[in-house]
Design a protein around this nucleic acid. Structure first.
Lengths: 341, 341
DNA sequence: TTGTACGCGTTATCAC
DNA sequence: GTGATAACGCGTACAA
């Protein structure tokens, strides 16, 4: 069924239409709707009524062209599954929501060509600023070229000290995880993490090892066990670990996926979690953590906060307060059954 | 360190700047850059050079104001974790990428107020069209008010027959799953699904039961086992099922999460997957399906295709070809180890 | 208190 | 082949 668009395509009503209907000039209509105080209460009321009778919505293009601000910021992500981007987007929208700003997300899928394309598209639409979200936490090269608008890097920092970045503090998070396990009286603590080529894996390990050293302890098993981010690595790592070090009483996994593998292998060995071995993960990915048996204690990267702070810094920069440097965000411990019985 | 924005804030260069640098008029510069053929090759070259020397990017606001099209479509989602939205966004970007169109995503988080807010924001920025992505597959009420631009509903259809919708065909997917299991010689097939209040659960079950009937079979266990979408439901459902019907040789789970629970319970009972019982899931959620042991056969909802088709219909509608009705998208079977040893 | 006139940056239509 | 000029819809000095 092909239908001609009749009313649909009808031209949006303009300020001119409103003015005509209200019987005033365009200028007066503008003042009335924008809350300028040089307009009589009665006129204002008439204009307002005319406006919503026509369901008038001001043309942001025209306004942007005139005042040089569009009230729009772009969020450029590289995420393939939205696990990072959506929380960051939500945080940014929270920060923007107060005012008349909107946040629009584009996905570059980790492809430099696509990224350039989207940057151009966003800039030509005159966004007031850009938030760039990485897919990994490694520092990244800043956007190339004279952009003309401020940029904040989120999740993954820019490798230029002149840029603004907001990132989760993975080192502190590693410390926090160990501190939690120590506070439960555990002392033979292993750390099974993911691909050692990831800064996230290295950072969390650095924090964990430091916290252990400060408590006068070594990592159980003699070293951090790096591997991959998959569940299967969690399983095989635990098996090898417990063969060599059967008295381990806690395992800090570098991700919830790994932790799921760890839980399974520990259970299959006939050991109890958390009684024999406390297990914790990282990411606080609900679908993995709260469906685990037992439910998984994890570390939340507070990505919504990352997004909110990134947007706030961006707005500040748009007002001329460019404040360079990397801003760390504290992660949050989410305690569930796998560490406290 | 607070730095004054010096060069950053510098005004974007305009067509006027380019024209001046190239020593031609604004009109000529415009024609040269837009590939009009009423311009001498030499002049065109000069203008082009001037343009990228100034890294000129045409102001889409001004163009949009004039020609009444912004080359921008809005993707309004309600997703809290991006699992649906990001694939749909990617598909829509694929469709848009050919031309000069861009897709921007906003997240309403399933909140009607936020949705209205975002619709207004998008319309005031004069998007050429809207794609609305639901968080559940139930038909939803269409966007209210005279929008003035075409809308396509994706994943969840509009409940108005006059609207355009693109959705995954869950009924056919249910049939497809059963057909797969039948083709492997299984005949005592159970279906464990999620919350019966979800259309997705009902639709998949409808397809599954129909396919079984056509093969002269009944659902093992006598009825579809509805519960929740959690892993724990998969586990407990299997335990109850196998107590009553120990000869079940295949289980079709309504989601990958449920399937994970099923796999675990089956294994703990000492049965082998797929030798004793073939298991399959739904969603093809990589992190769950390919990390499972054994890797999980699943059904992919082809969300990227849904996004692409939605965008294509939207572009057609923008050209005046409004084609109402619900367009189903075939799901795809992804075979892994849990059904074929 | 209200209205007139200009300009934001672009494209399209006409003269030249 | 090239260049003035008129729109698009809005906000704001400035004049009335």
């Amino acid at each position: 069924m092909t239908v001609e668009q009749s009313g649909q395509r009808r031209r949006q009503s303009t300020l001119g239409d409103v003015a005509k209907l209200a019987g005033v000039s365009i200028a007066t209509a503008s003042k009335a709707l924008n809350g300028r105080d040089q307009v009589a209460p009665l006129t204002r009321a008439k204009v307002r009524e005319a406006a919503d009778q026509l369901s008038f919505s001001p043309n942001a293009l025209a306004r942007g062209l005139l005042v040089g601000r569009t009230g729009t910021i772009g969020l450029l992500t590289s995420d393939l599954e939205g696990r990072f981007s959506i929380p960051v987007l939500m945080g940014a929208e929270d920060a923007a929501g107060e005012g008349a700003n909107s946040v629009f997300l584009c996905d570059a899928r980790g492809d430099a060509i696509r990224e350039q394309h989207h940057v151009r598209a966003l800039l030509s639409r005159r966004v007031d600023g850009l938030i760039v979200v990485g897919s990994r936490t490694e520092p990244r090269a800043p956007l190339r070229g004279r952009l003309g608008v401020p940029v904040v890097y989120a999740y993954a920092p820019s490798d230029s000290a002149a840029d603004m970045s907001v990132v989760s503090d993975n080192v502190a998070a590693g410390r926090m995880a160990i501190a939690h396990l120590l506070s439960l009286g555990r002392s033979r603590i292993a750390h099974i993490s993911g691909d050692p080529g990831y800064a996230a894996a290295q950072d969390r390990a650095t924090g964990a090892v430091a916290a252990l050293h400060e408590a006068g302890l070594e990592v159980a098993g003699g070293r951090v066990l790096f591997g991959s981010w998959r569940e299967s690595w969690g399983r095989s790592a635990v098996e090898a670990l417990l063969d060599r070090e059967p008295d381990v009483d806690a395992i800090f996994a570098g991700s919830d996926q790994i932790a799921r593998g760890v839980l399974e292998a520990v259970r299959e060995r006939g050991l109890s979690v958390p009684d024999d071995i406390a297990v914790m993960g990282f990411d606080n990915w609900e679908v993995l953590a709260s469906n685990a048996r037992p439910q998984l204690t994890s570390v939340d990267m507070q990505l919504q906060t990352v997004g909110r702070l990134a947007a706030e810094r961006l707005f500040a920069a748009m007002d001329g307060k460019h404040d360079a440097g990397i801003q760390p965000v504290q992660c949050r411990l989410v305690v569930r059954e796998s560490t406290v019985g």
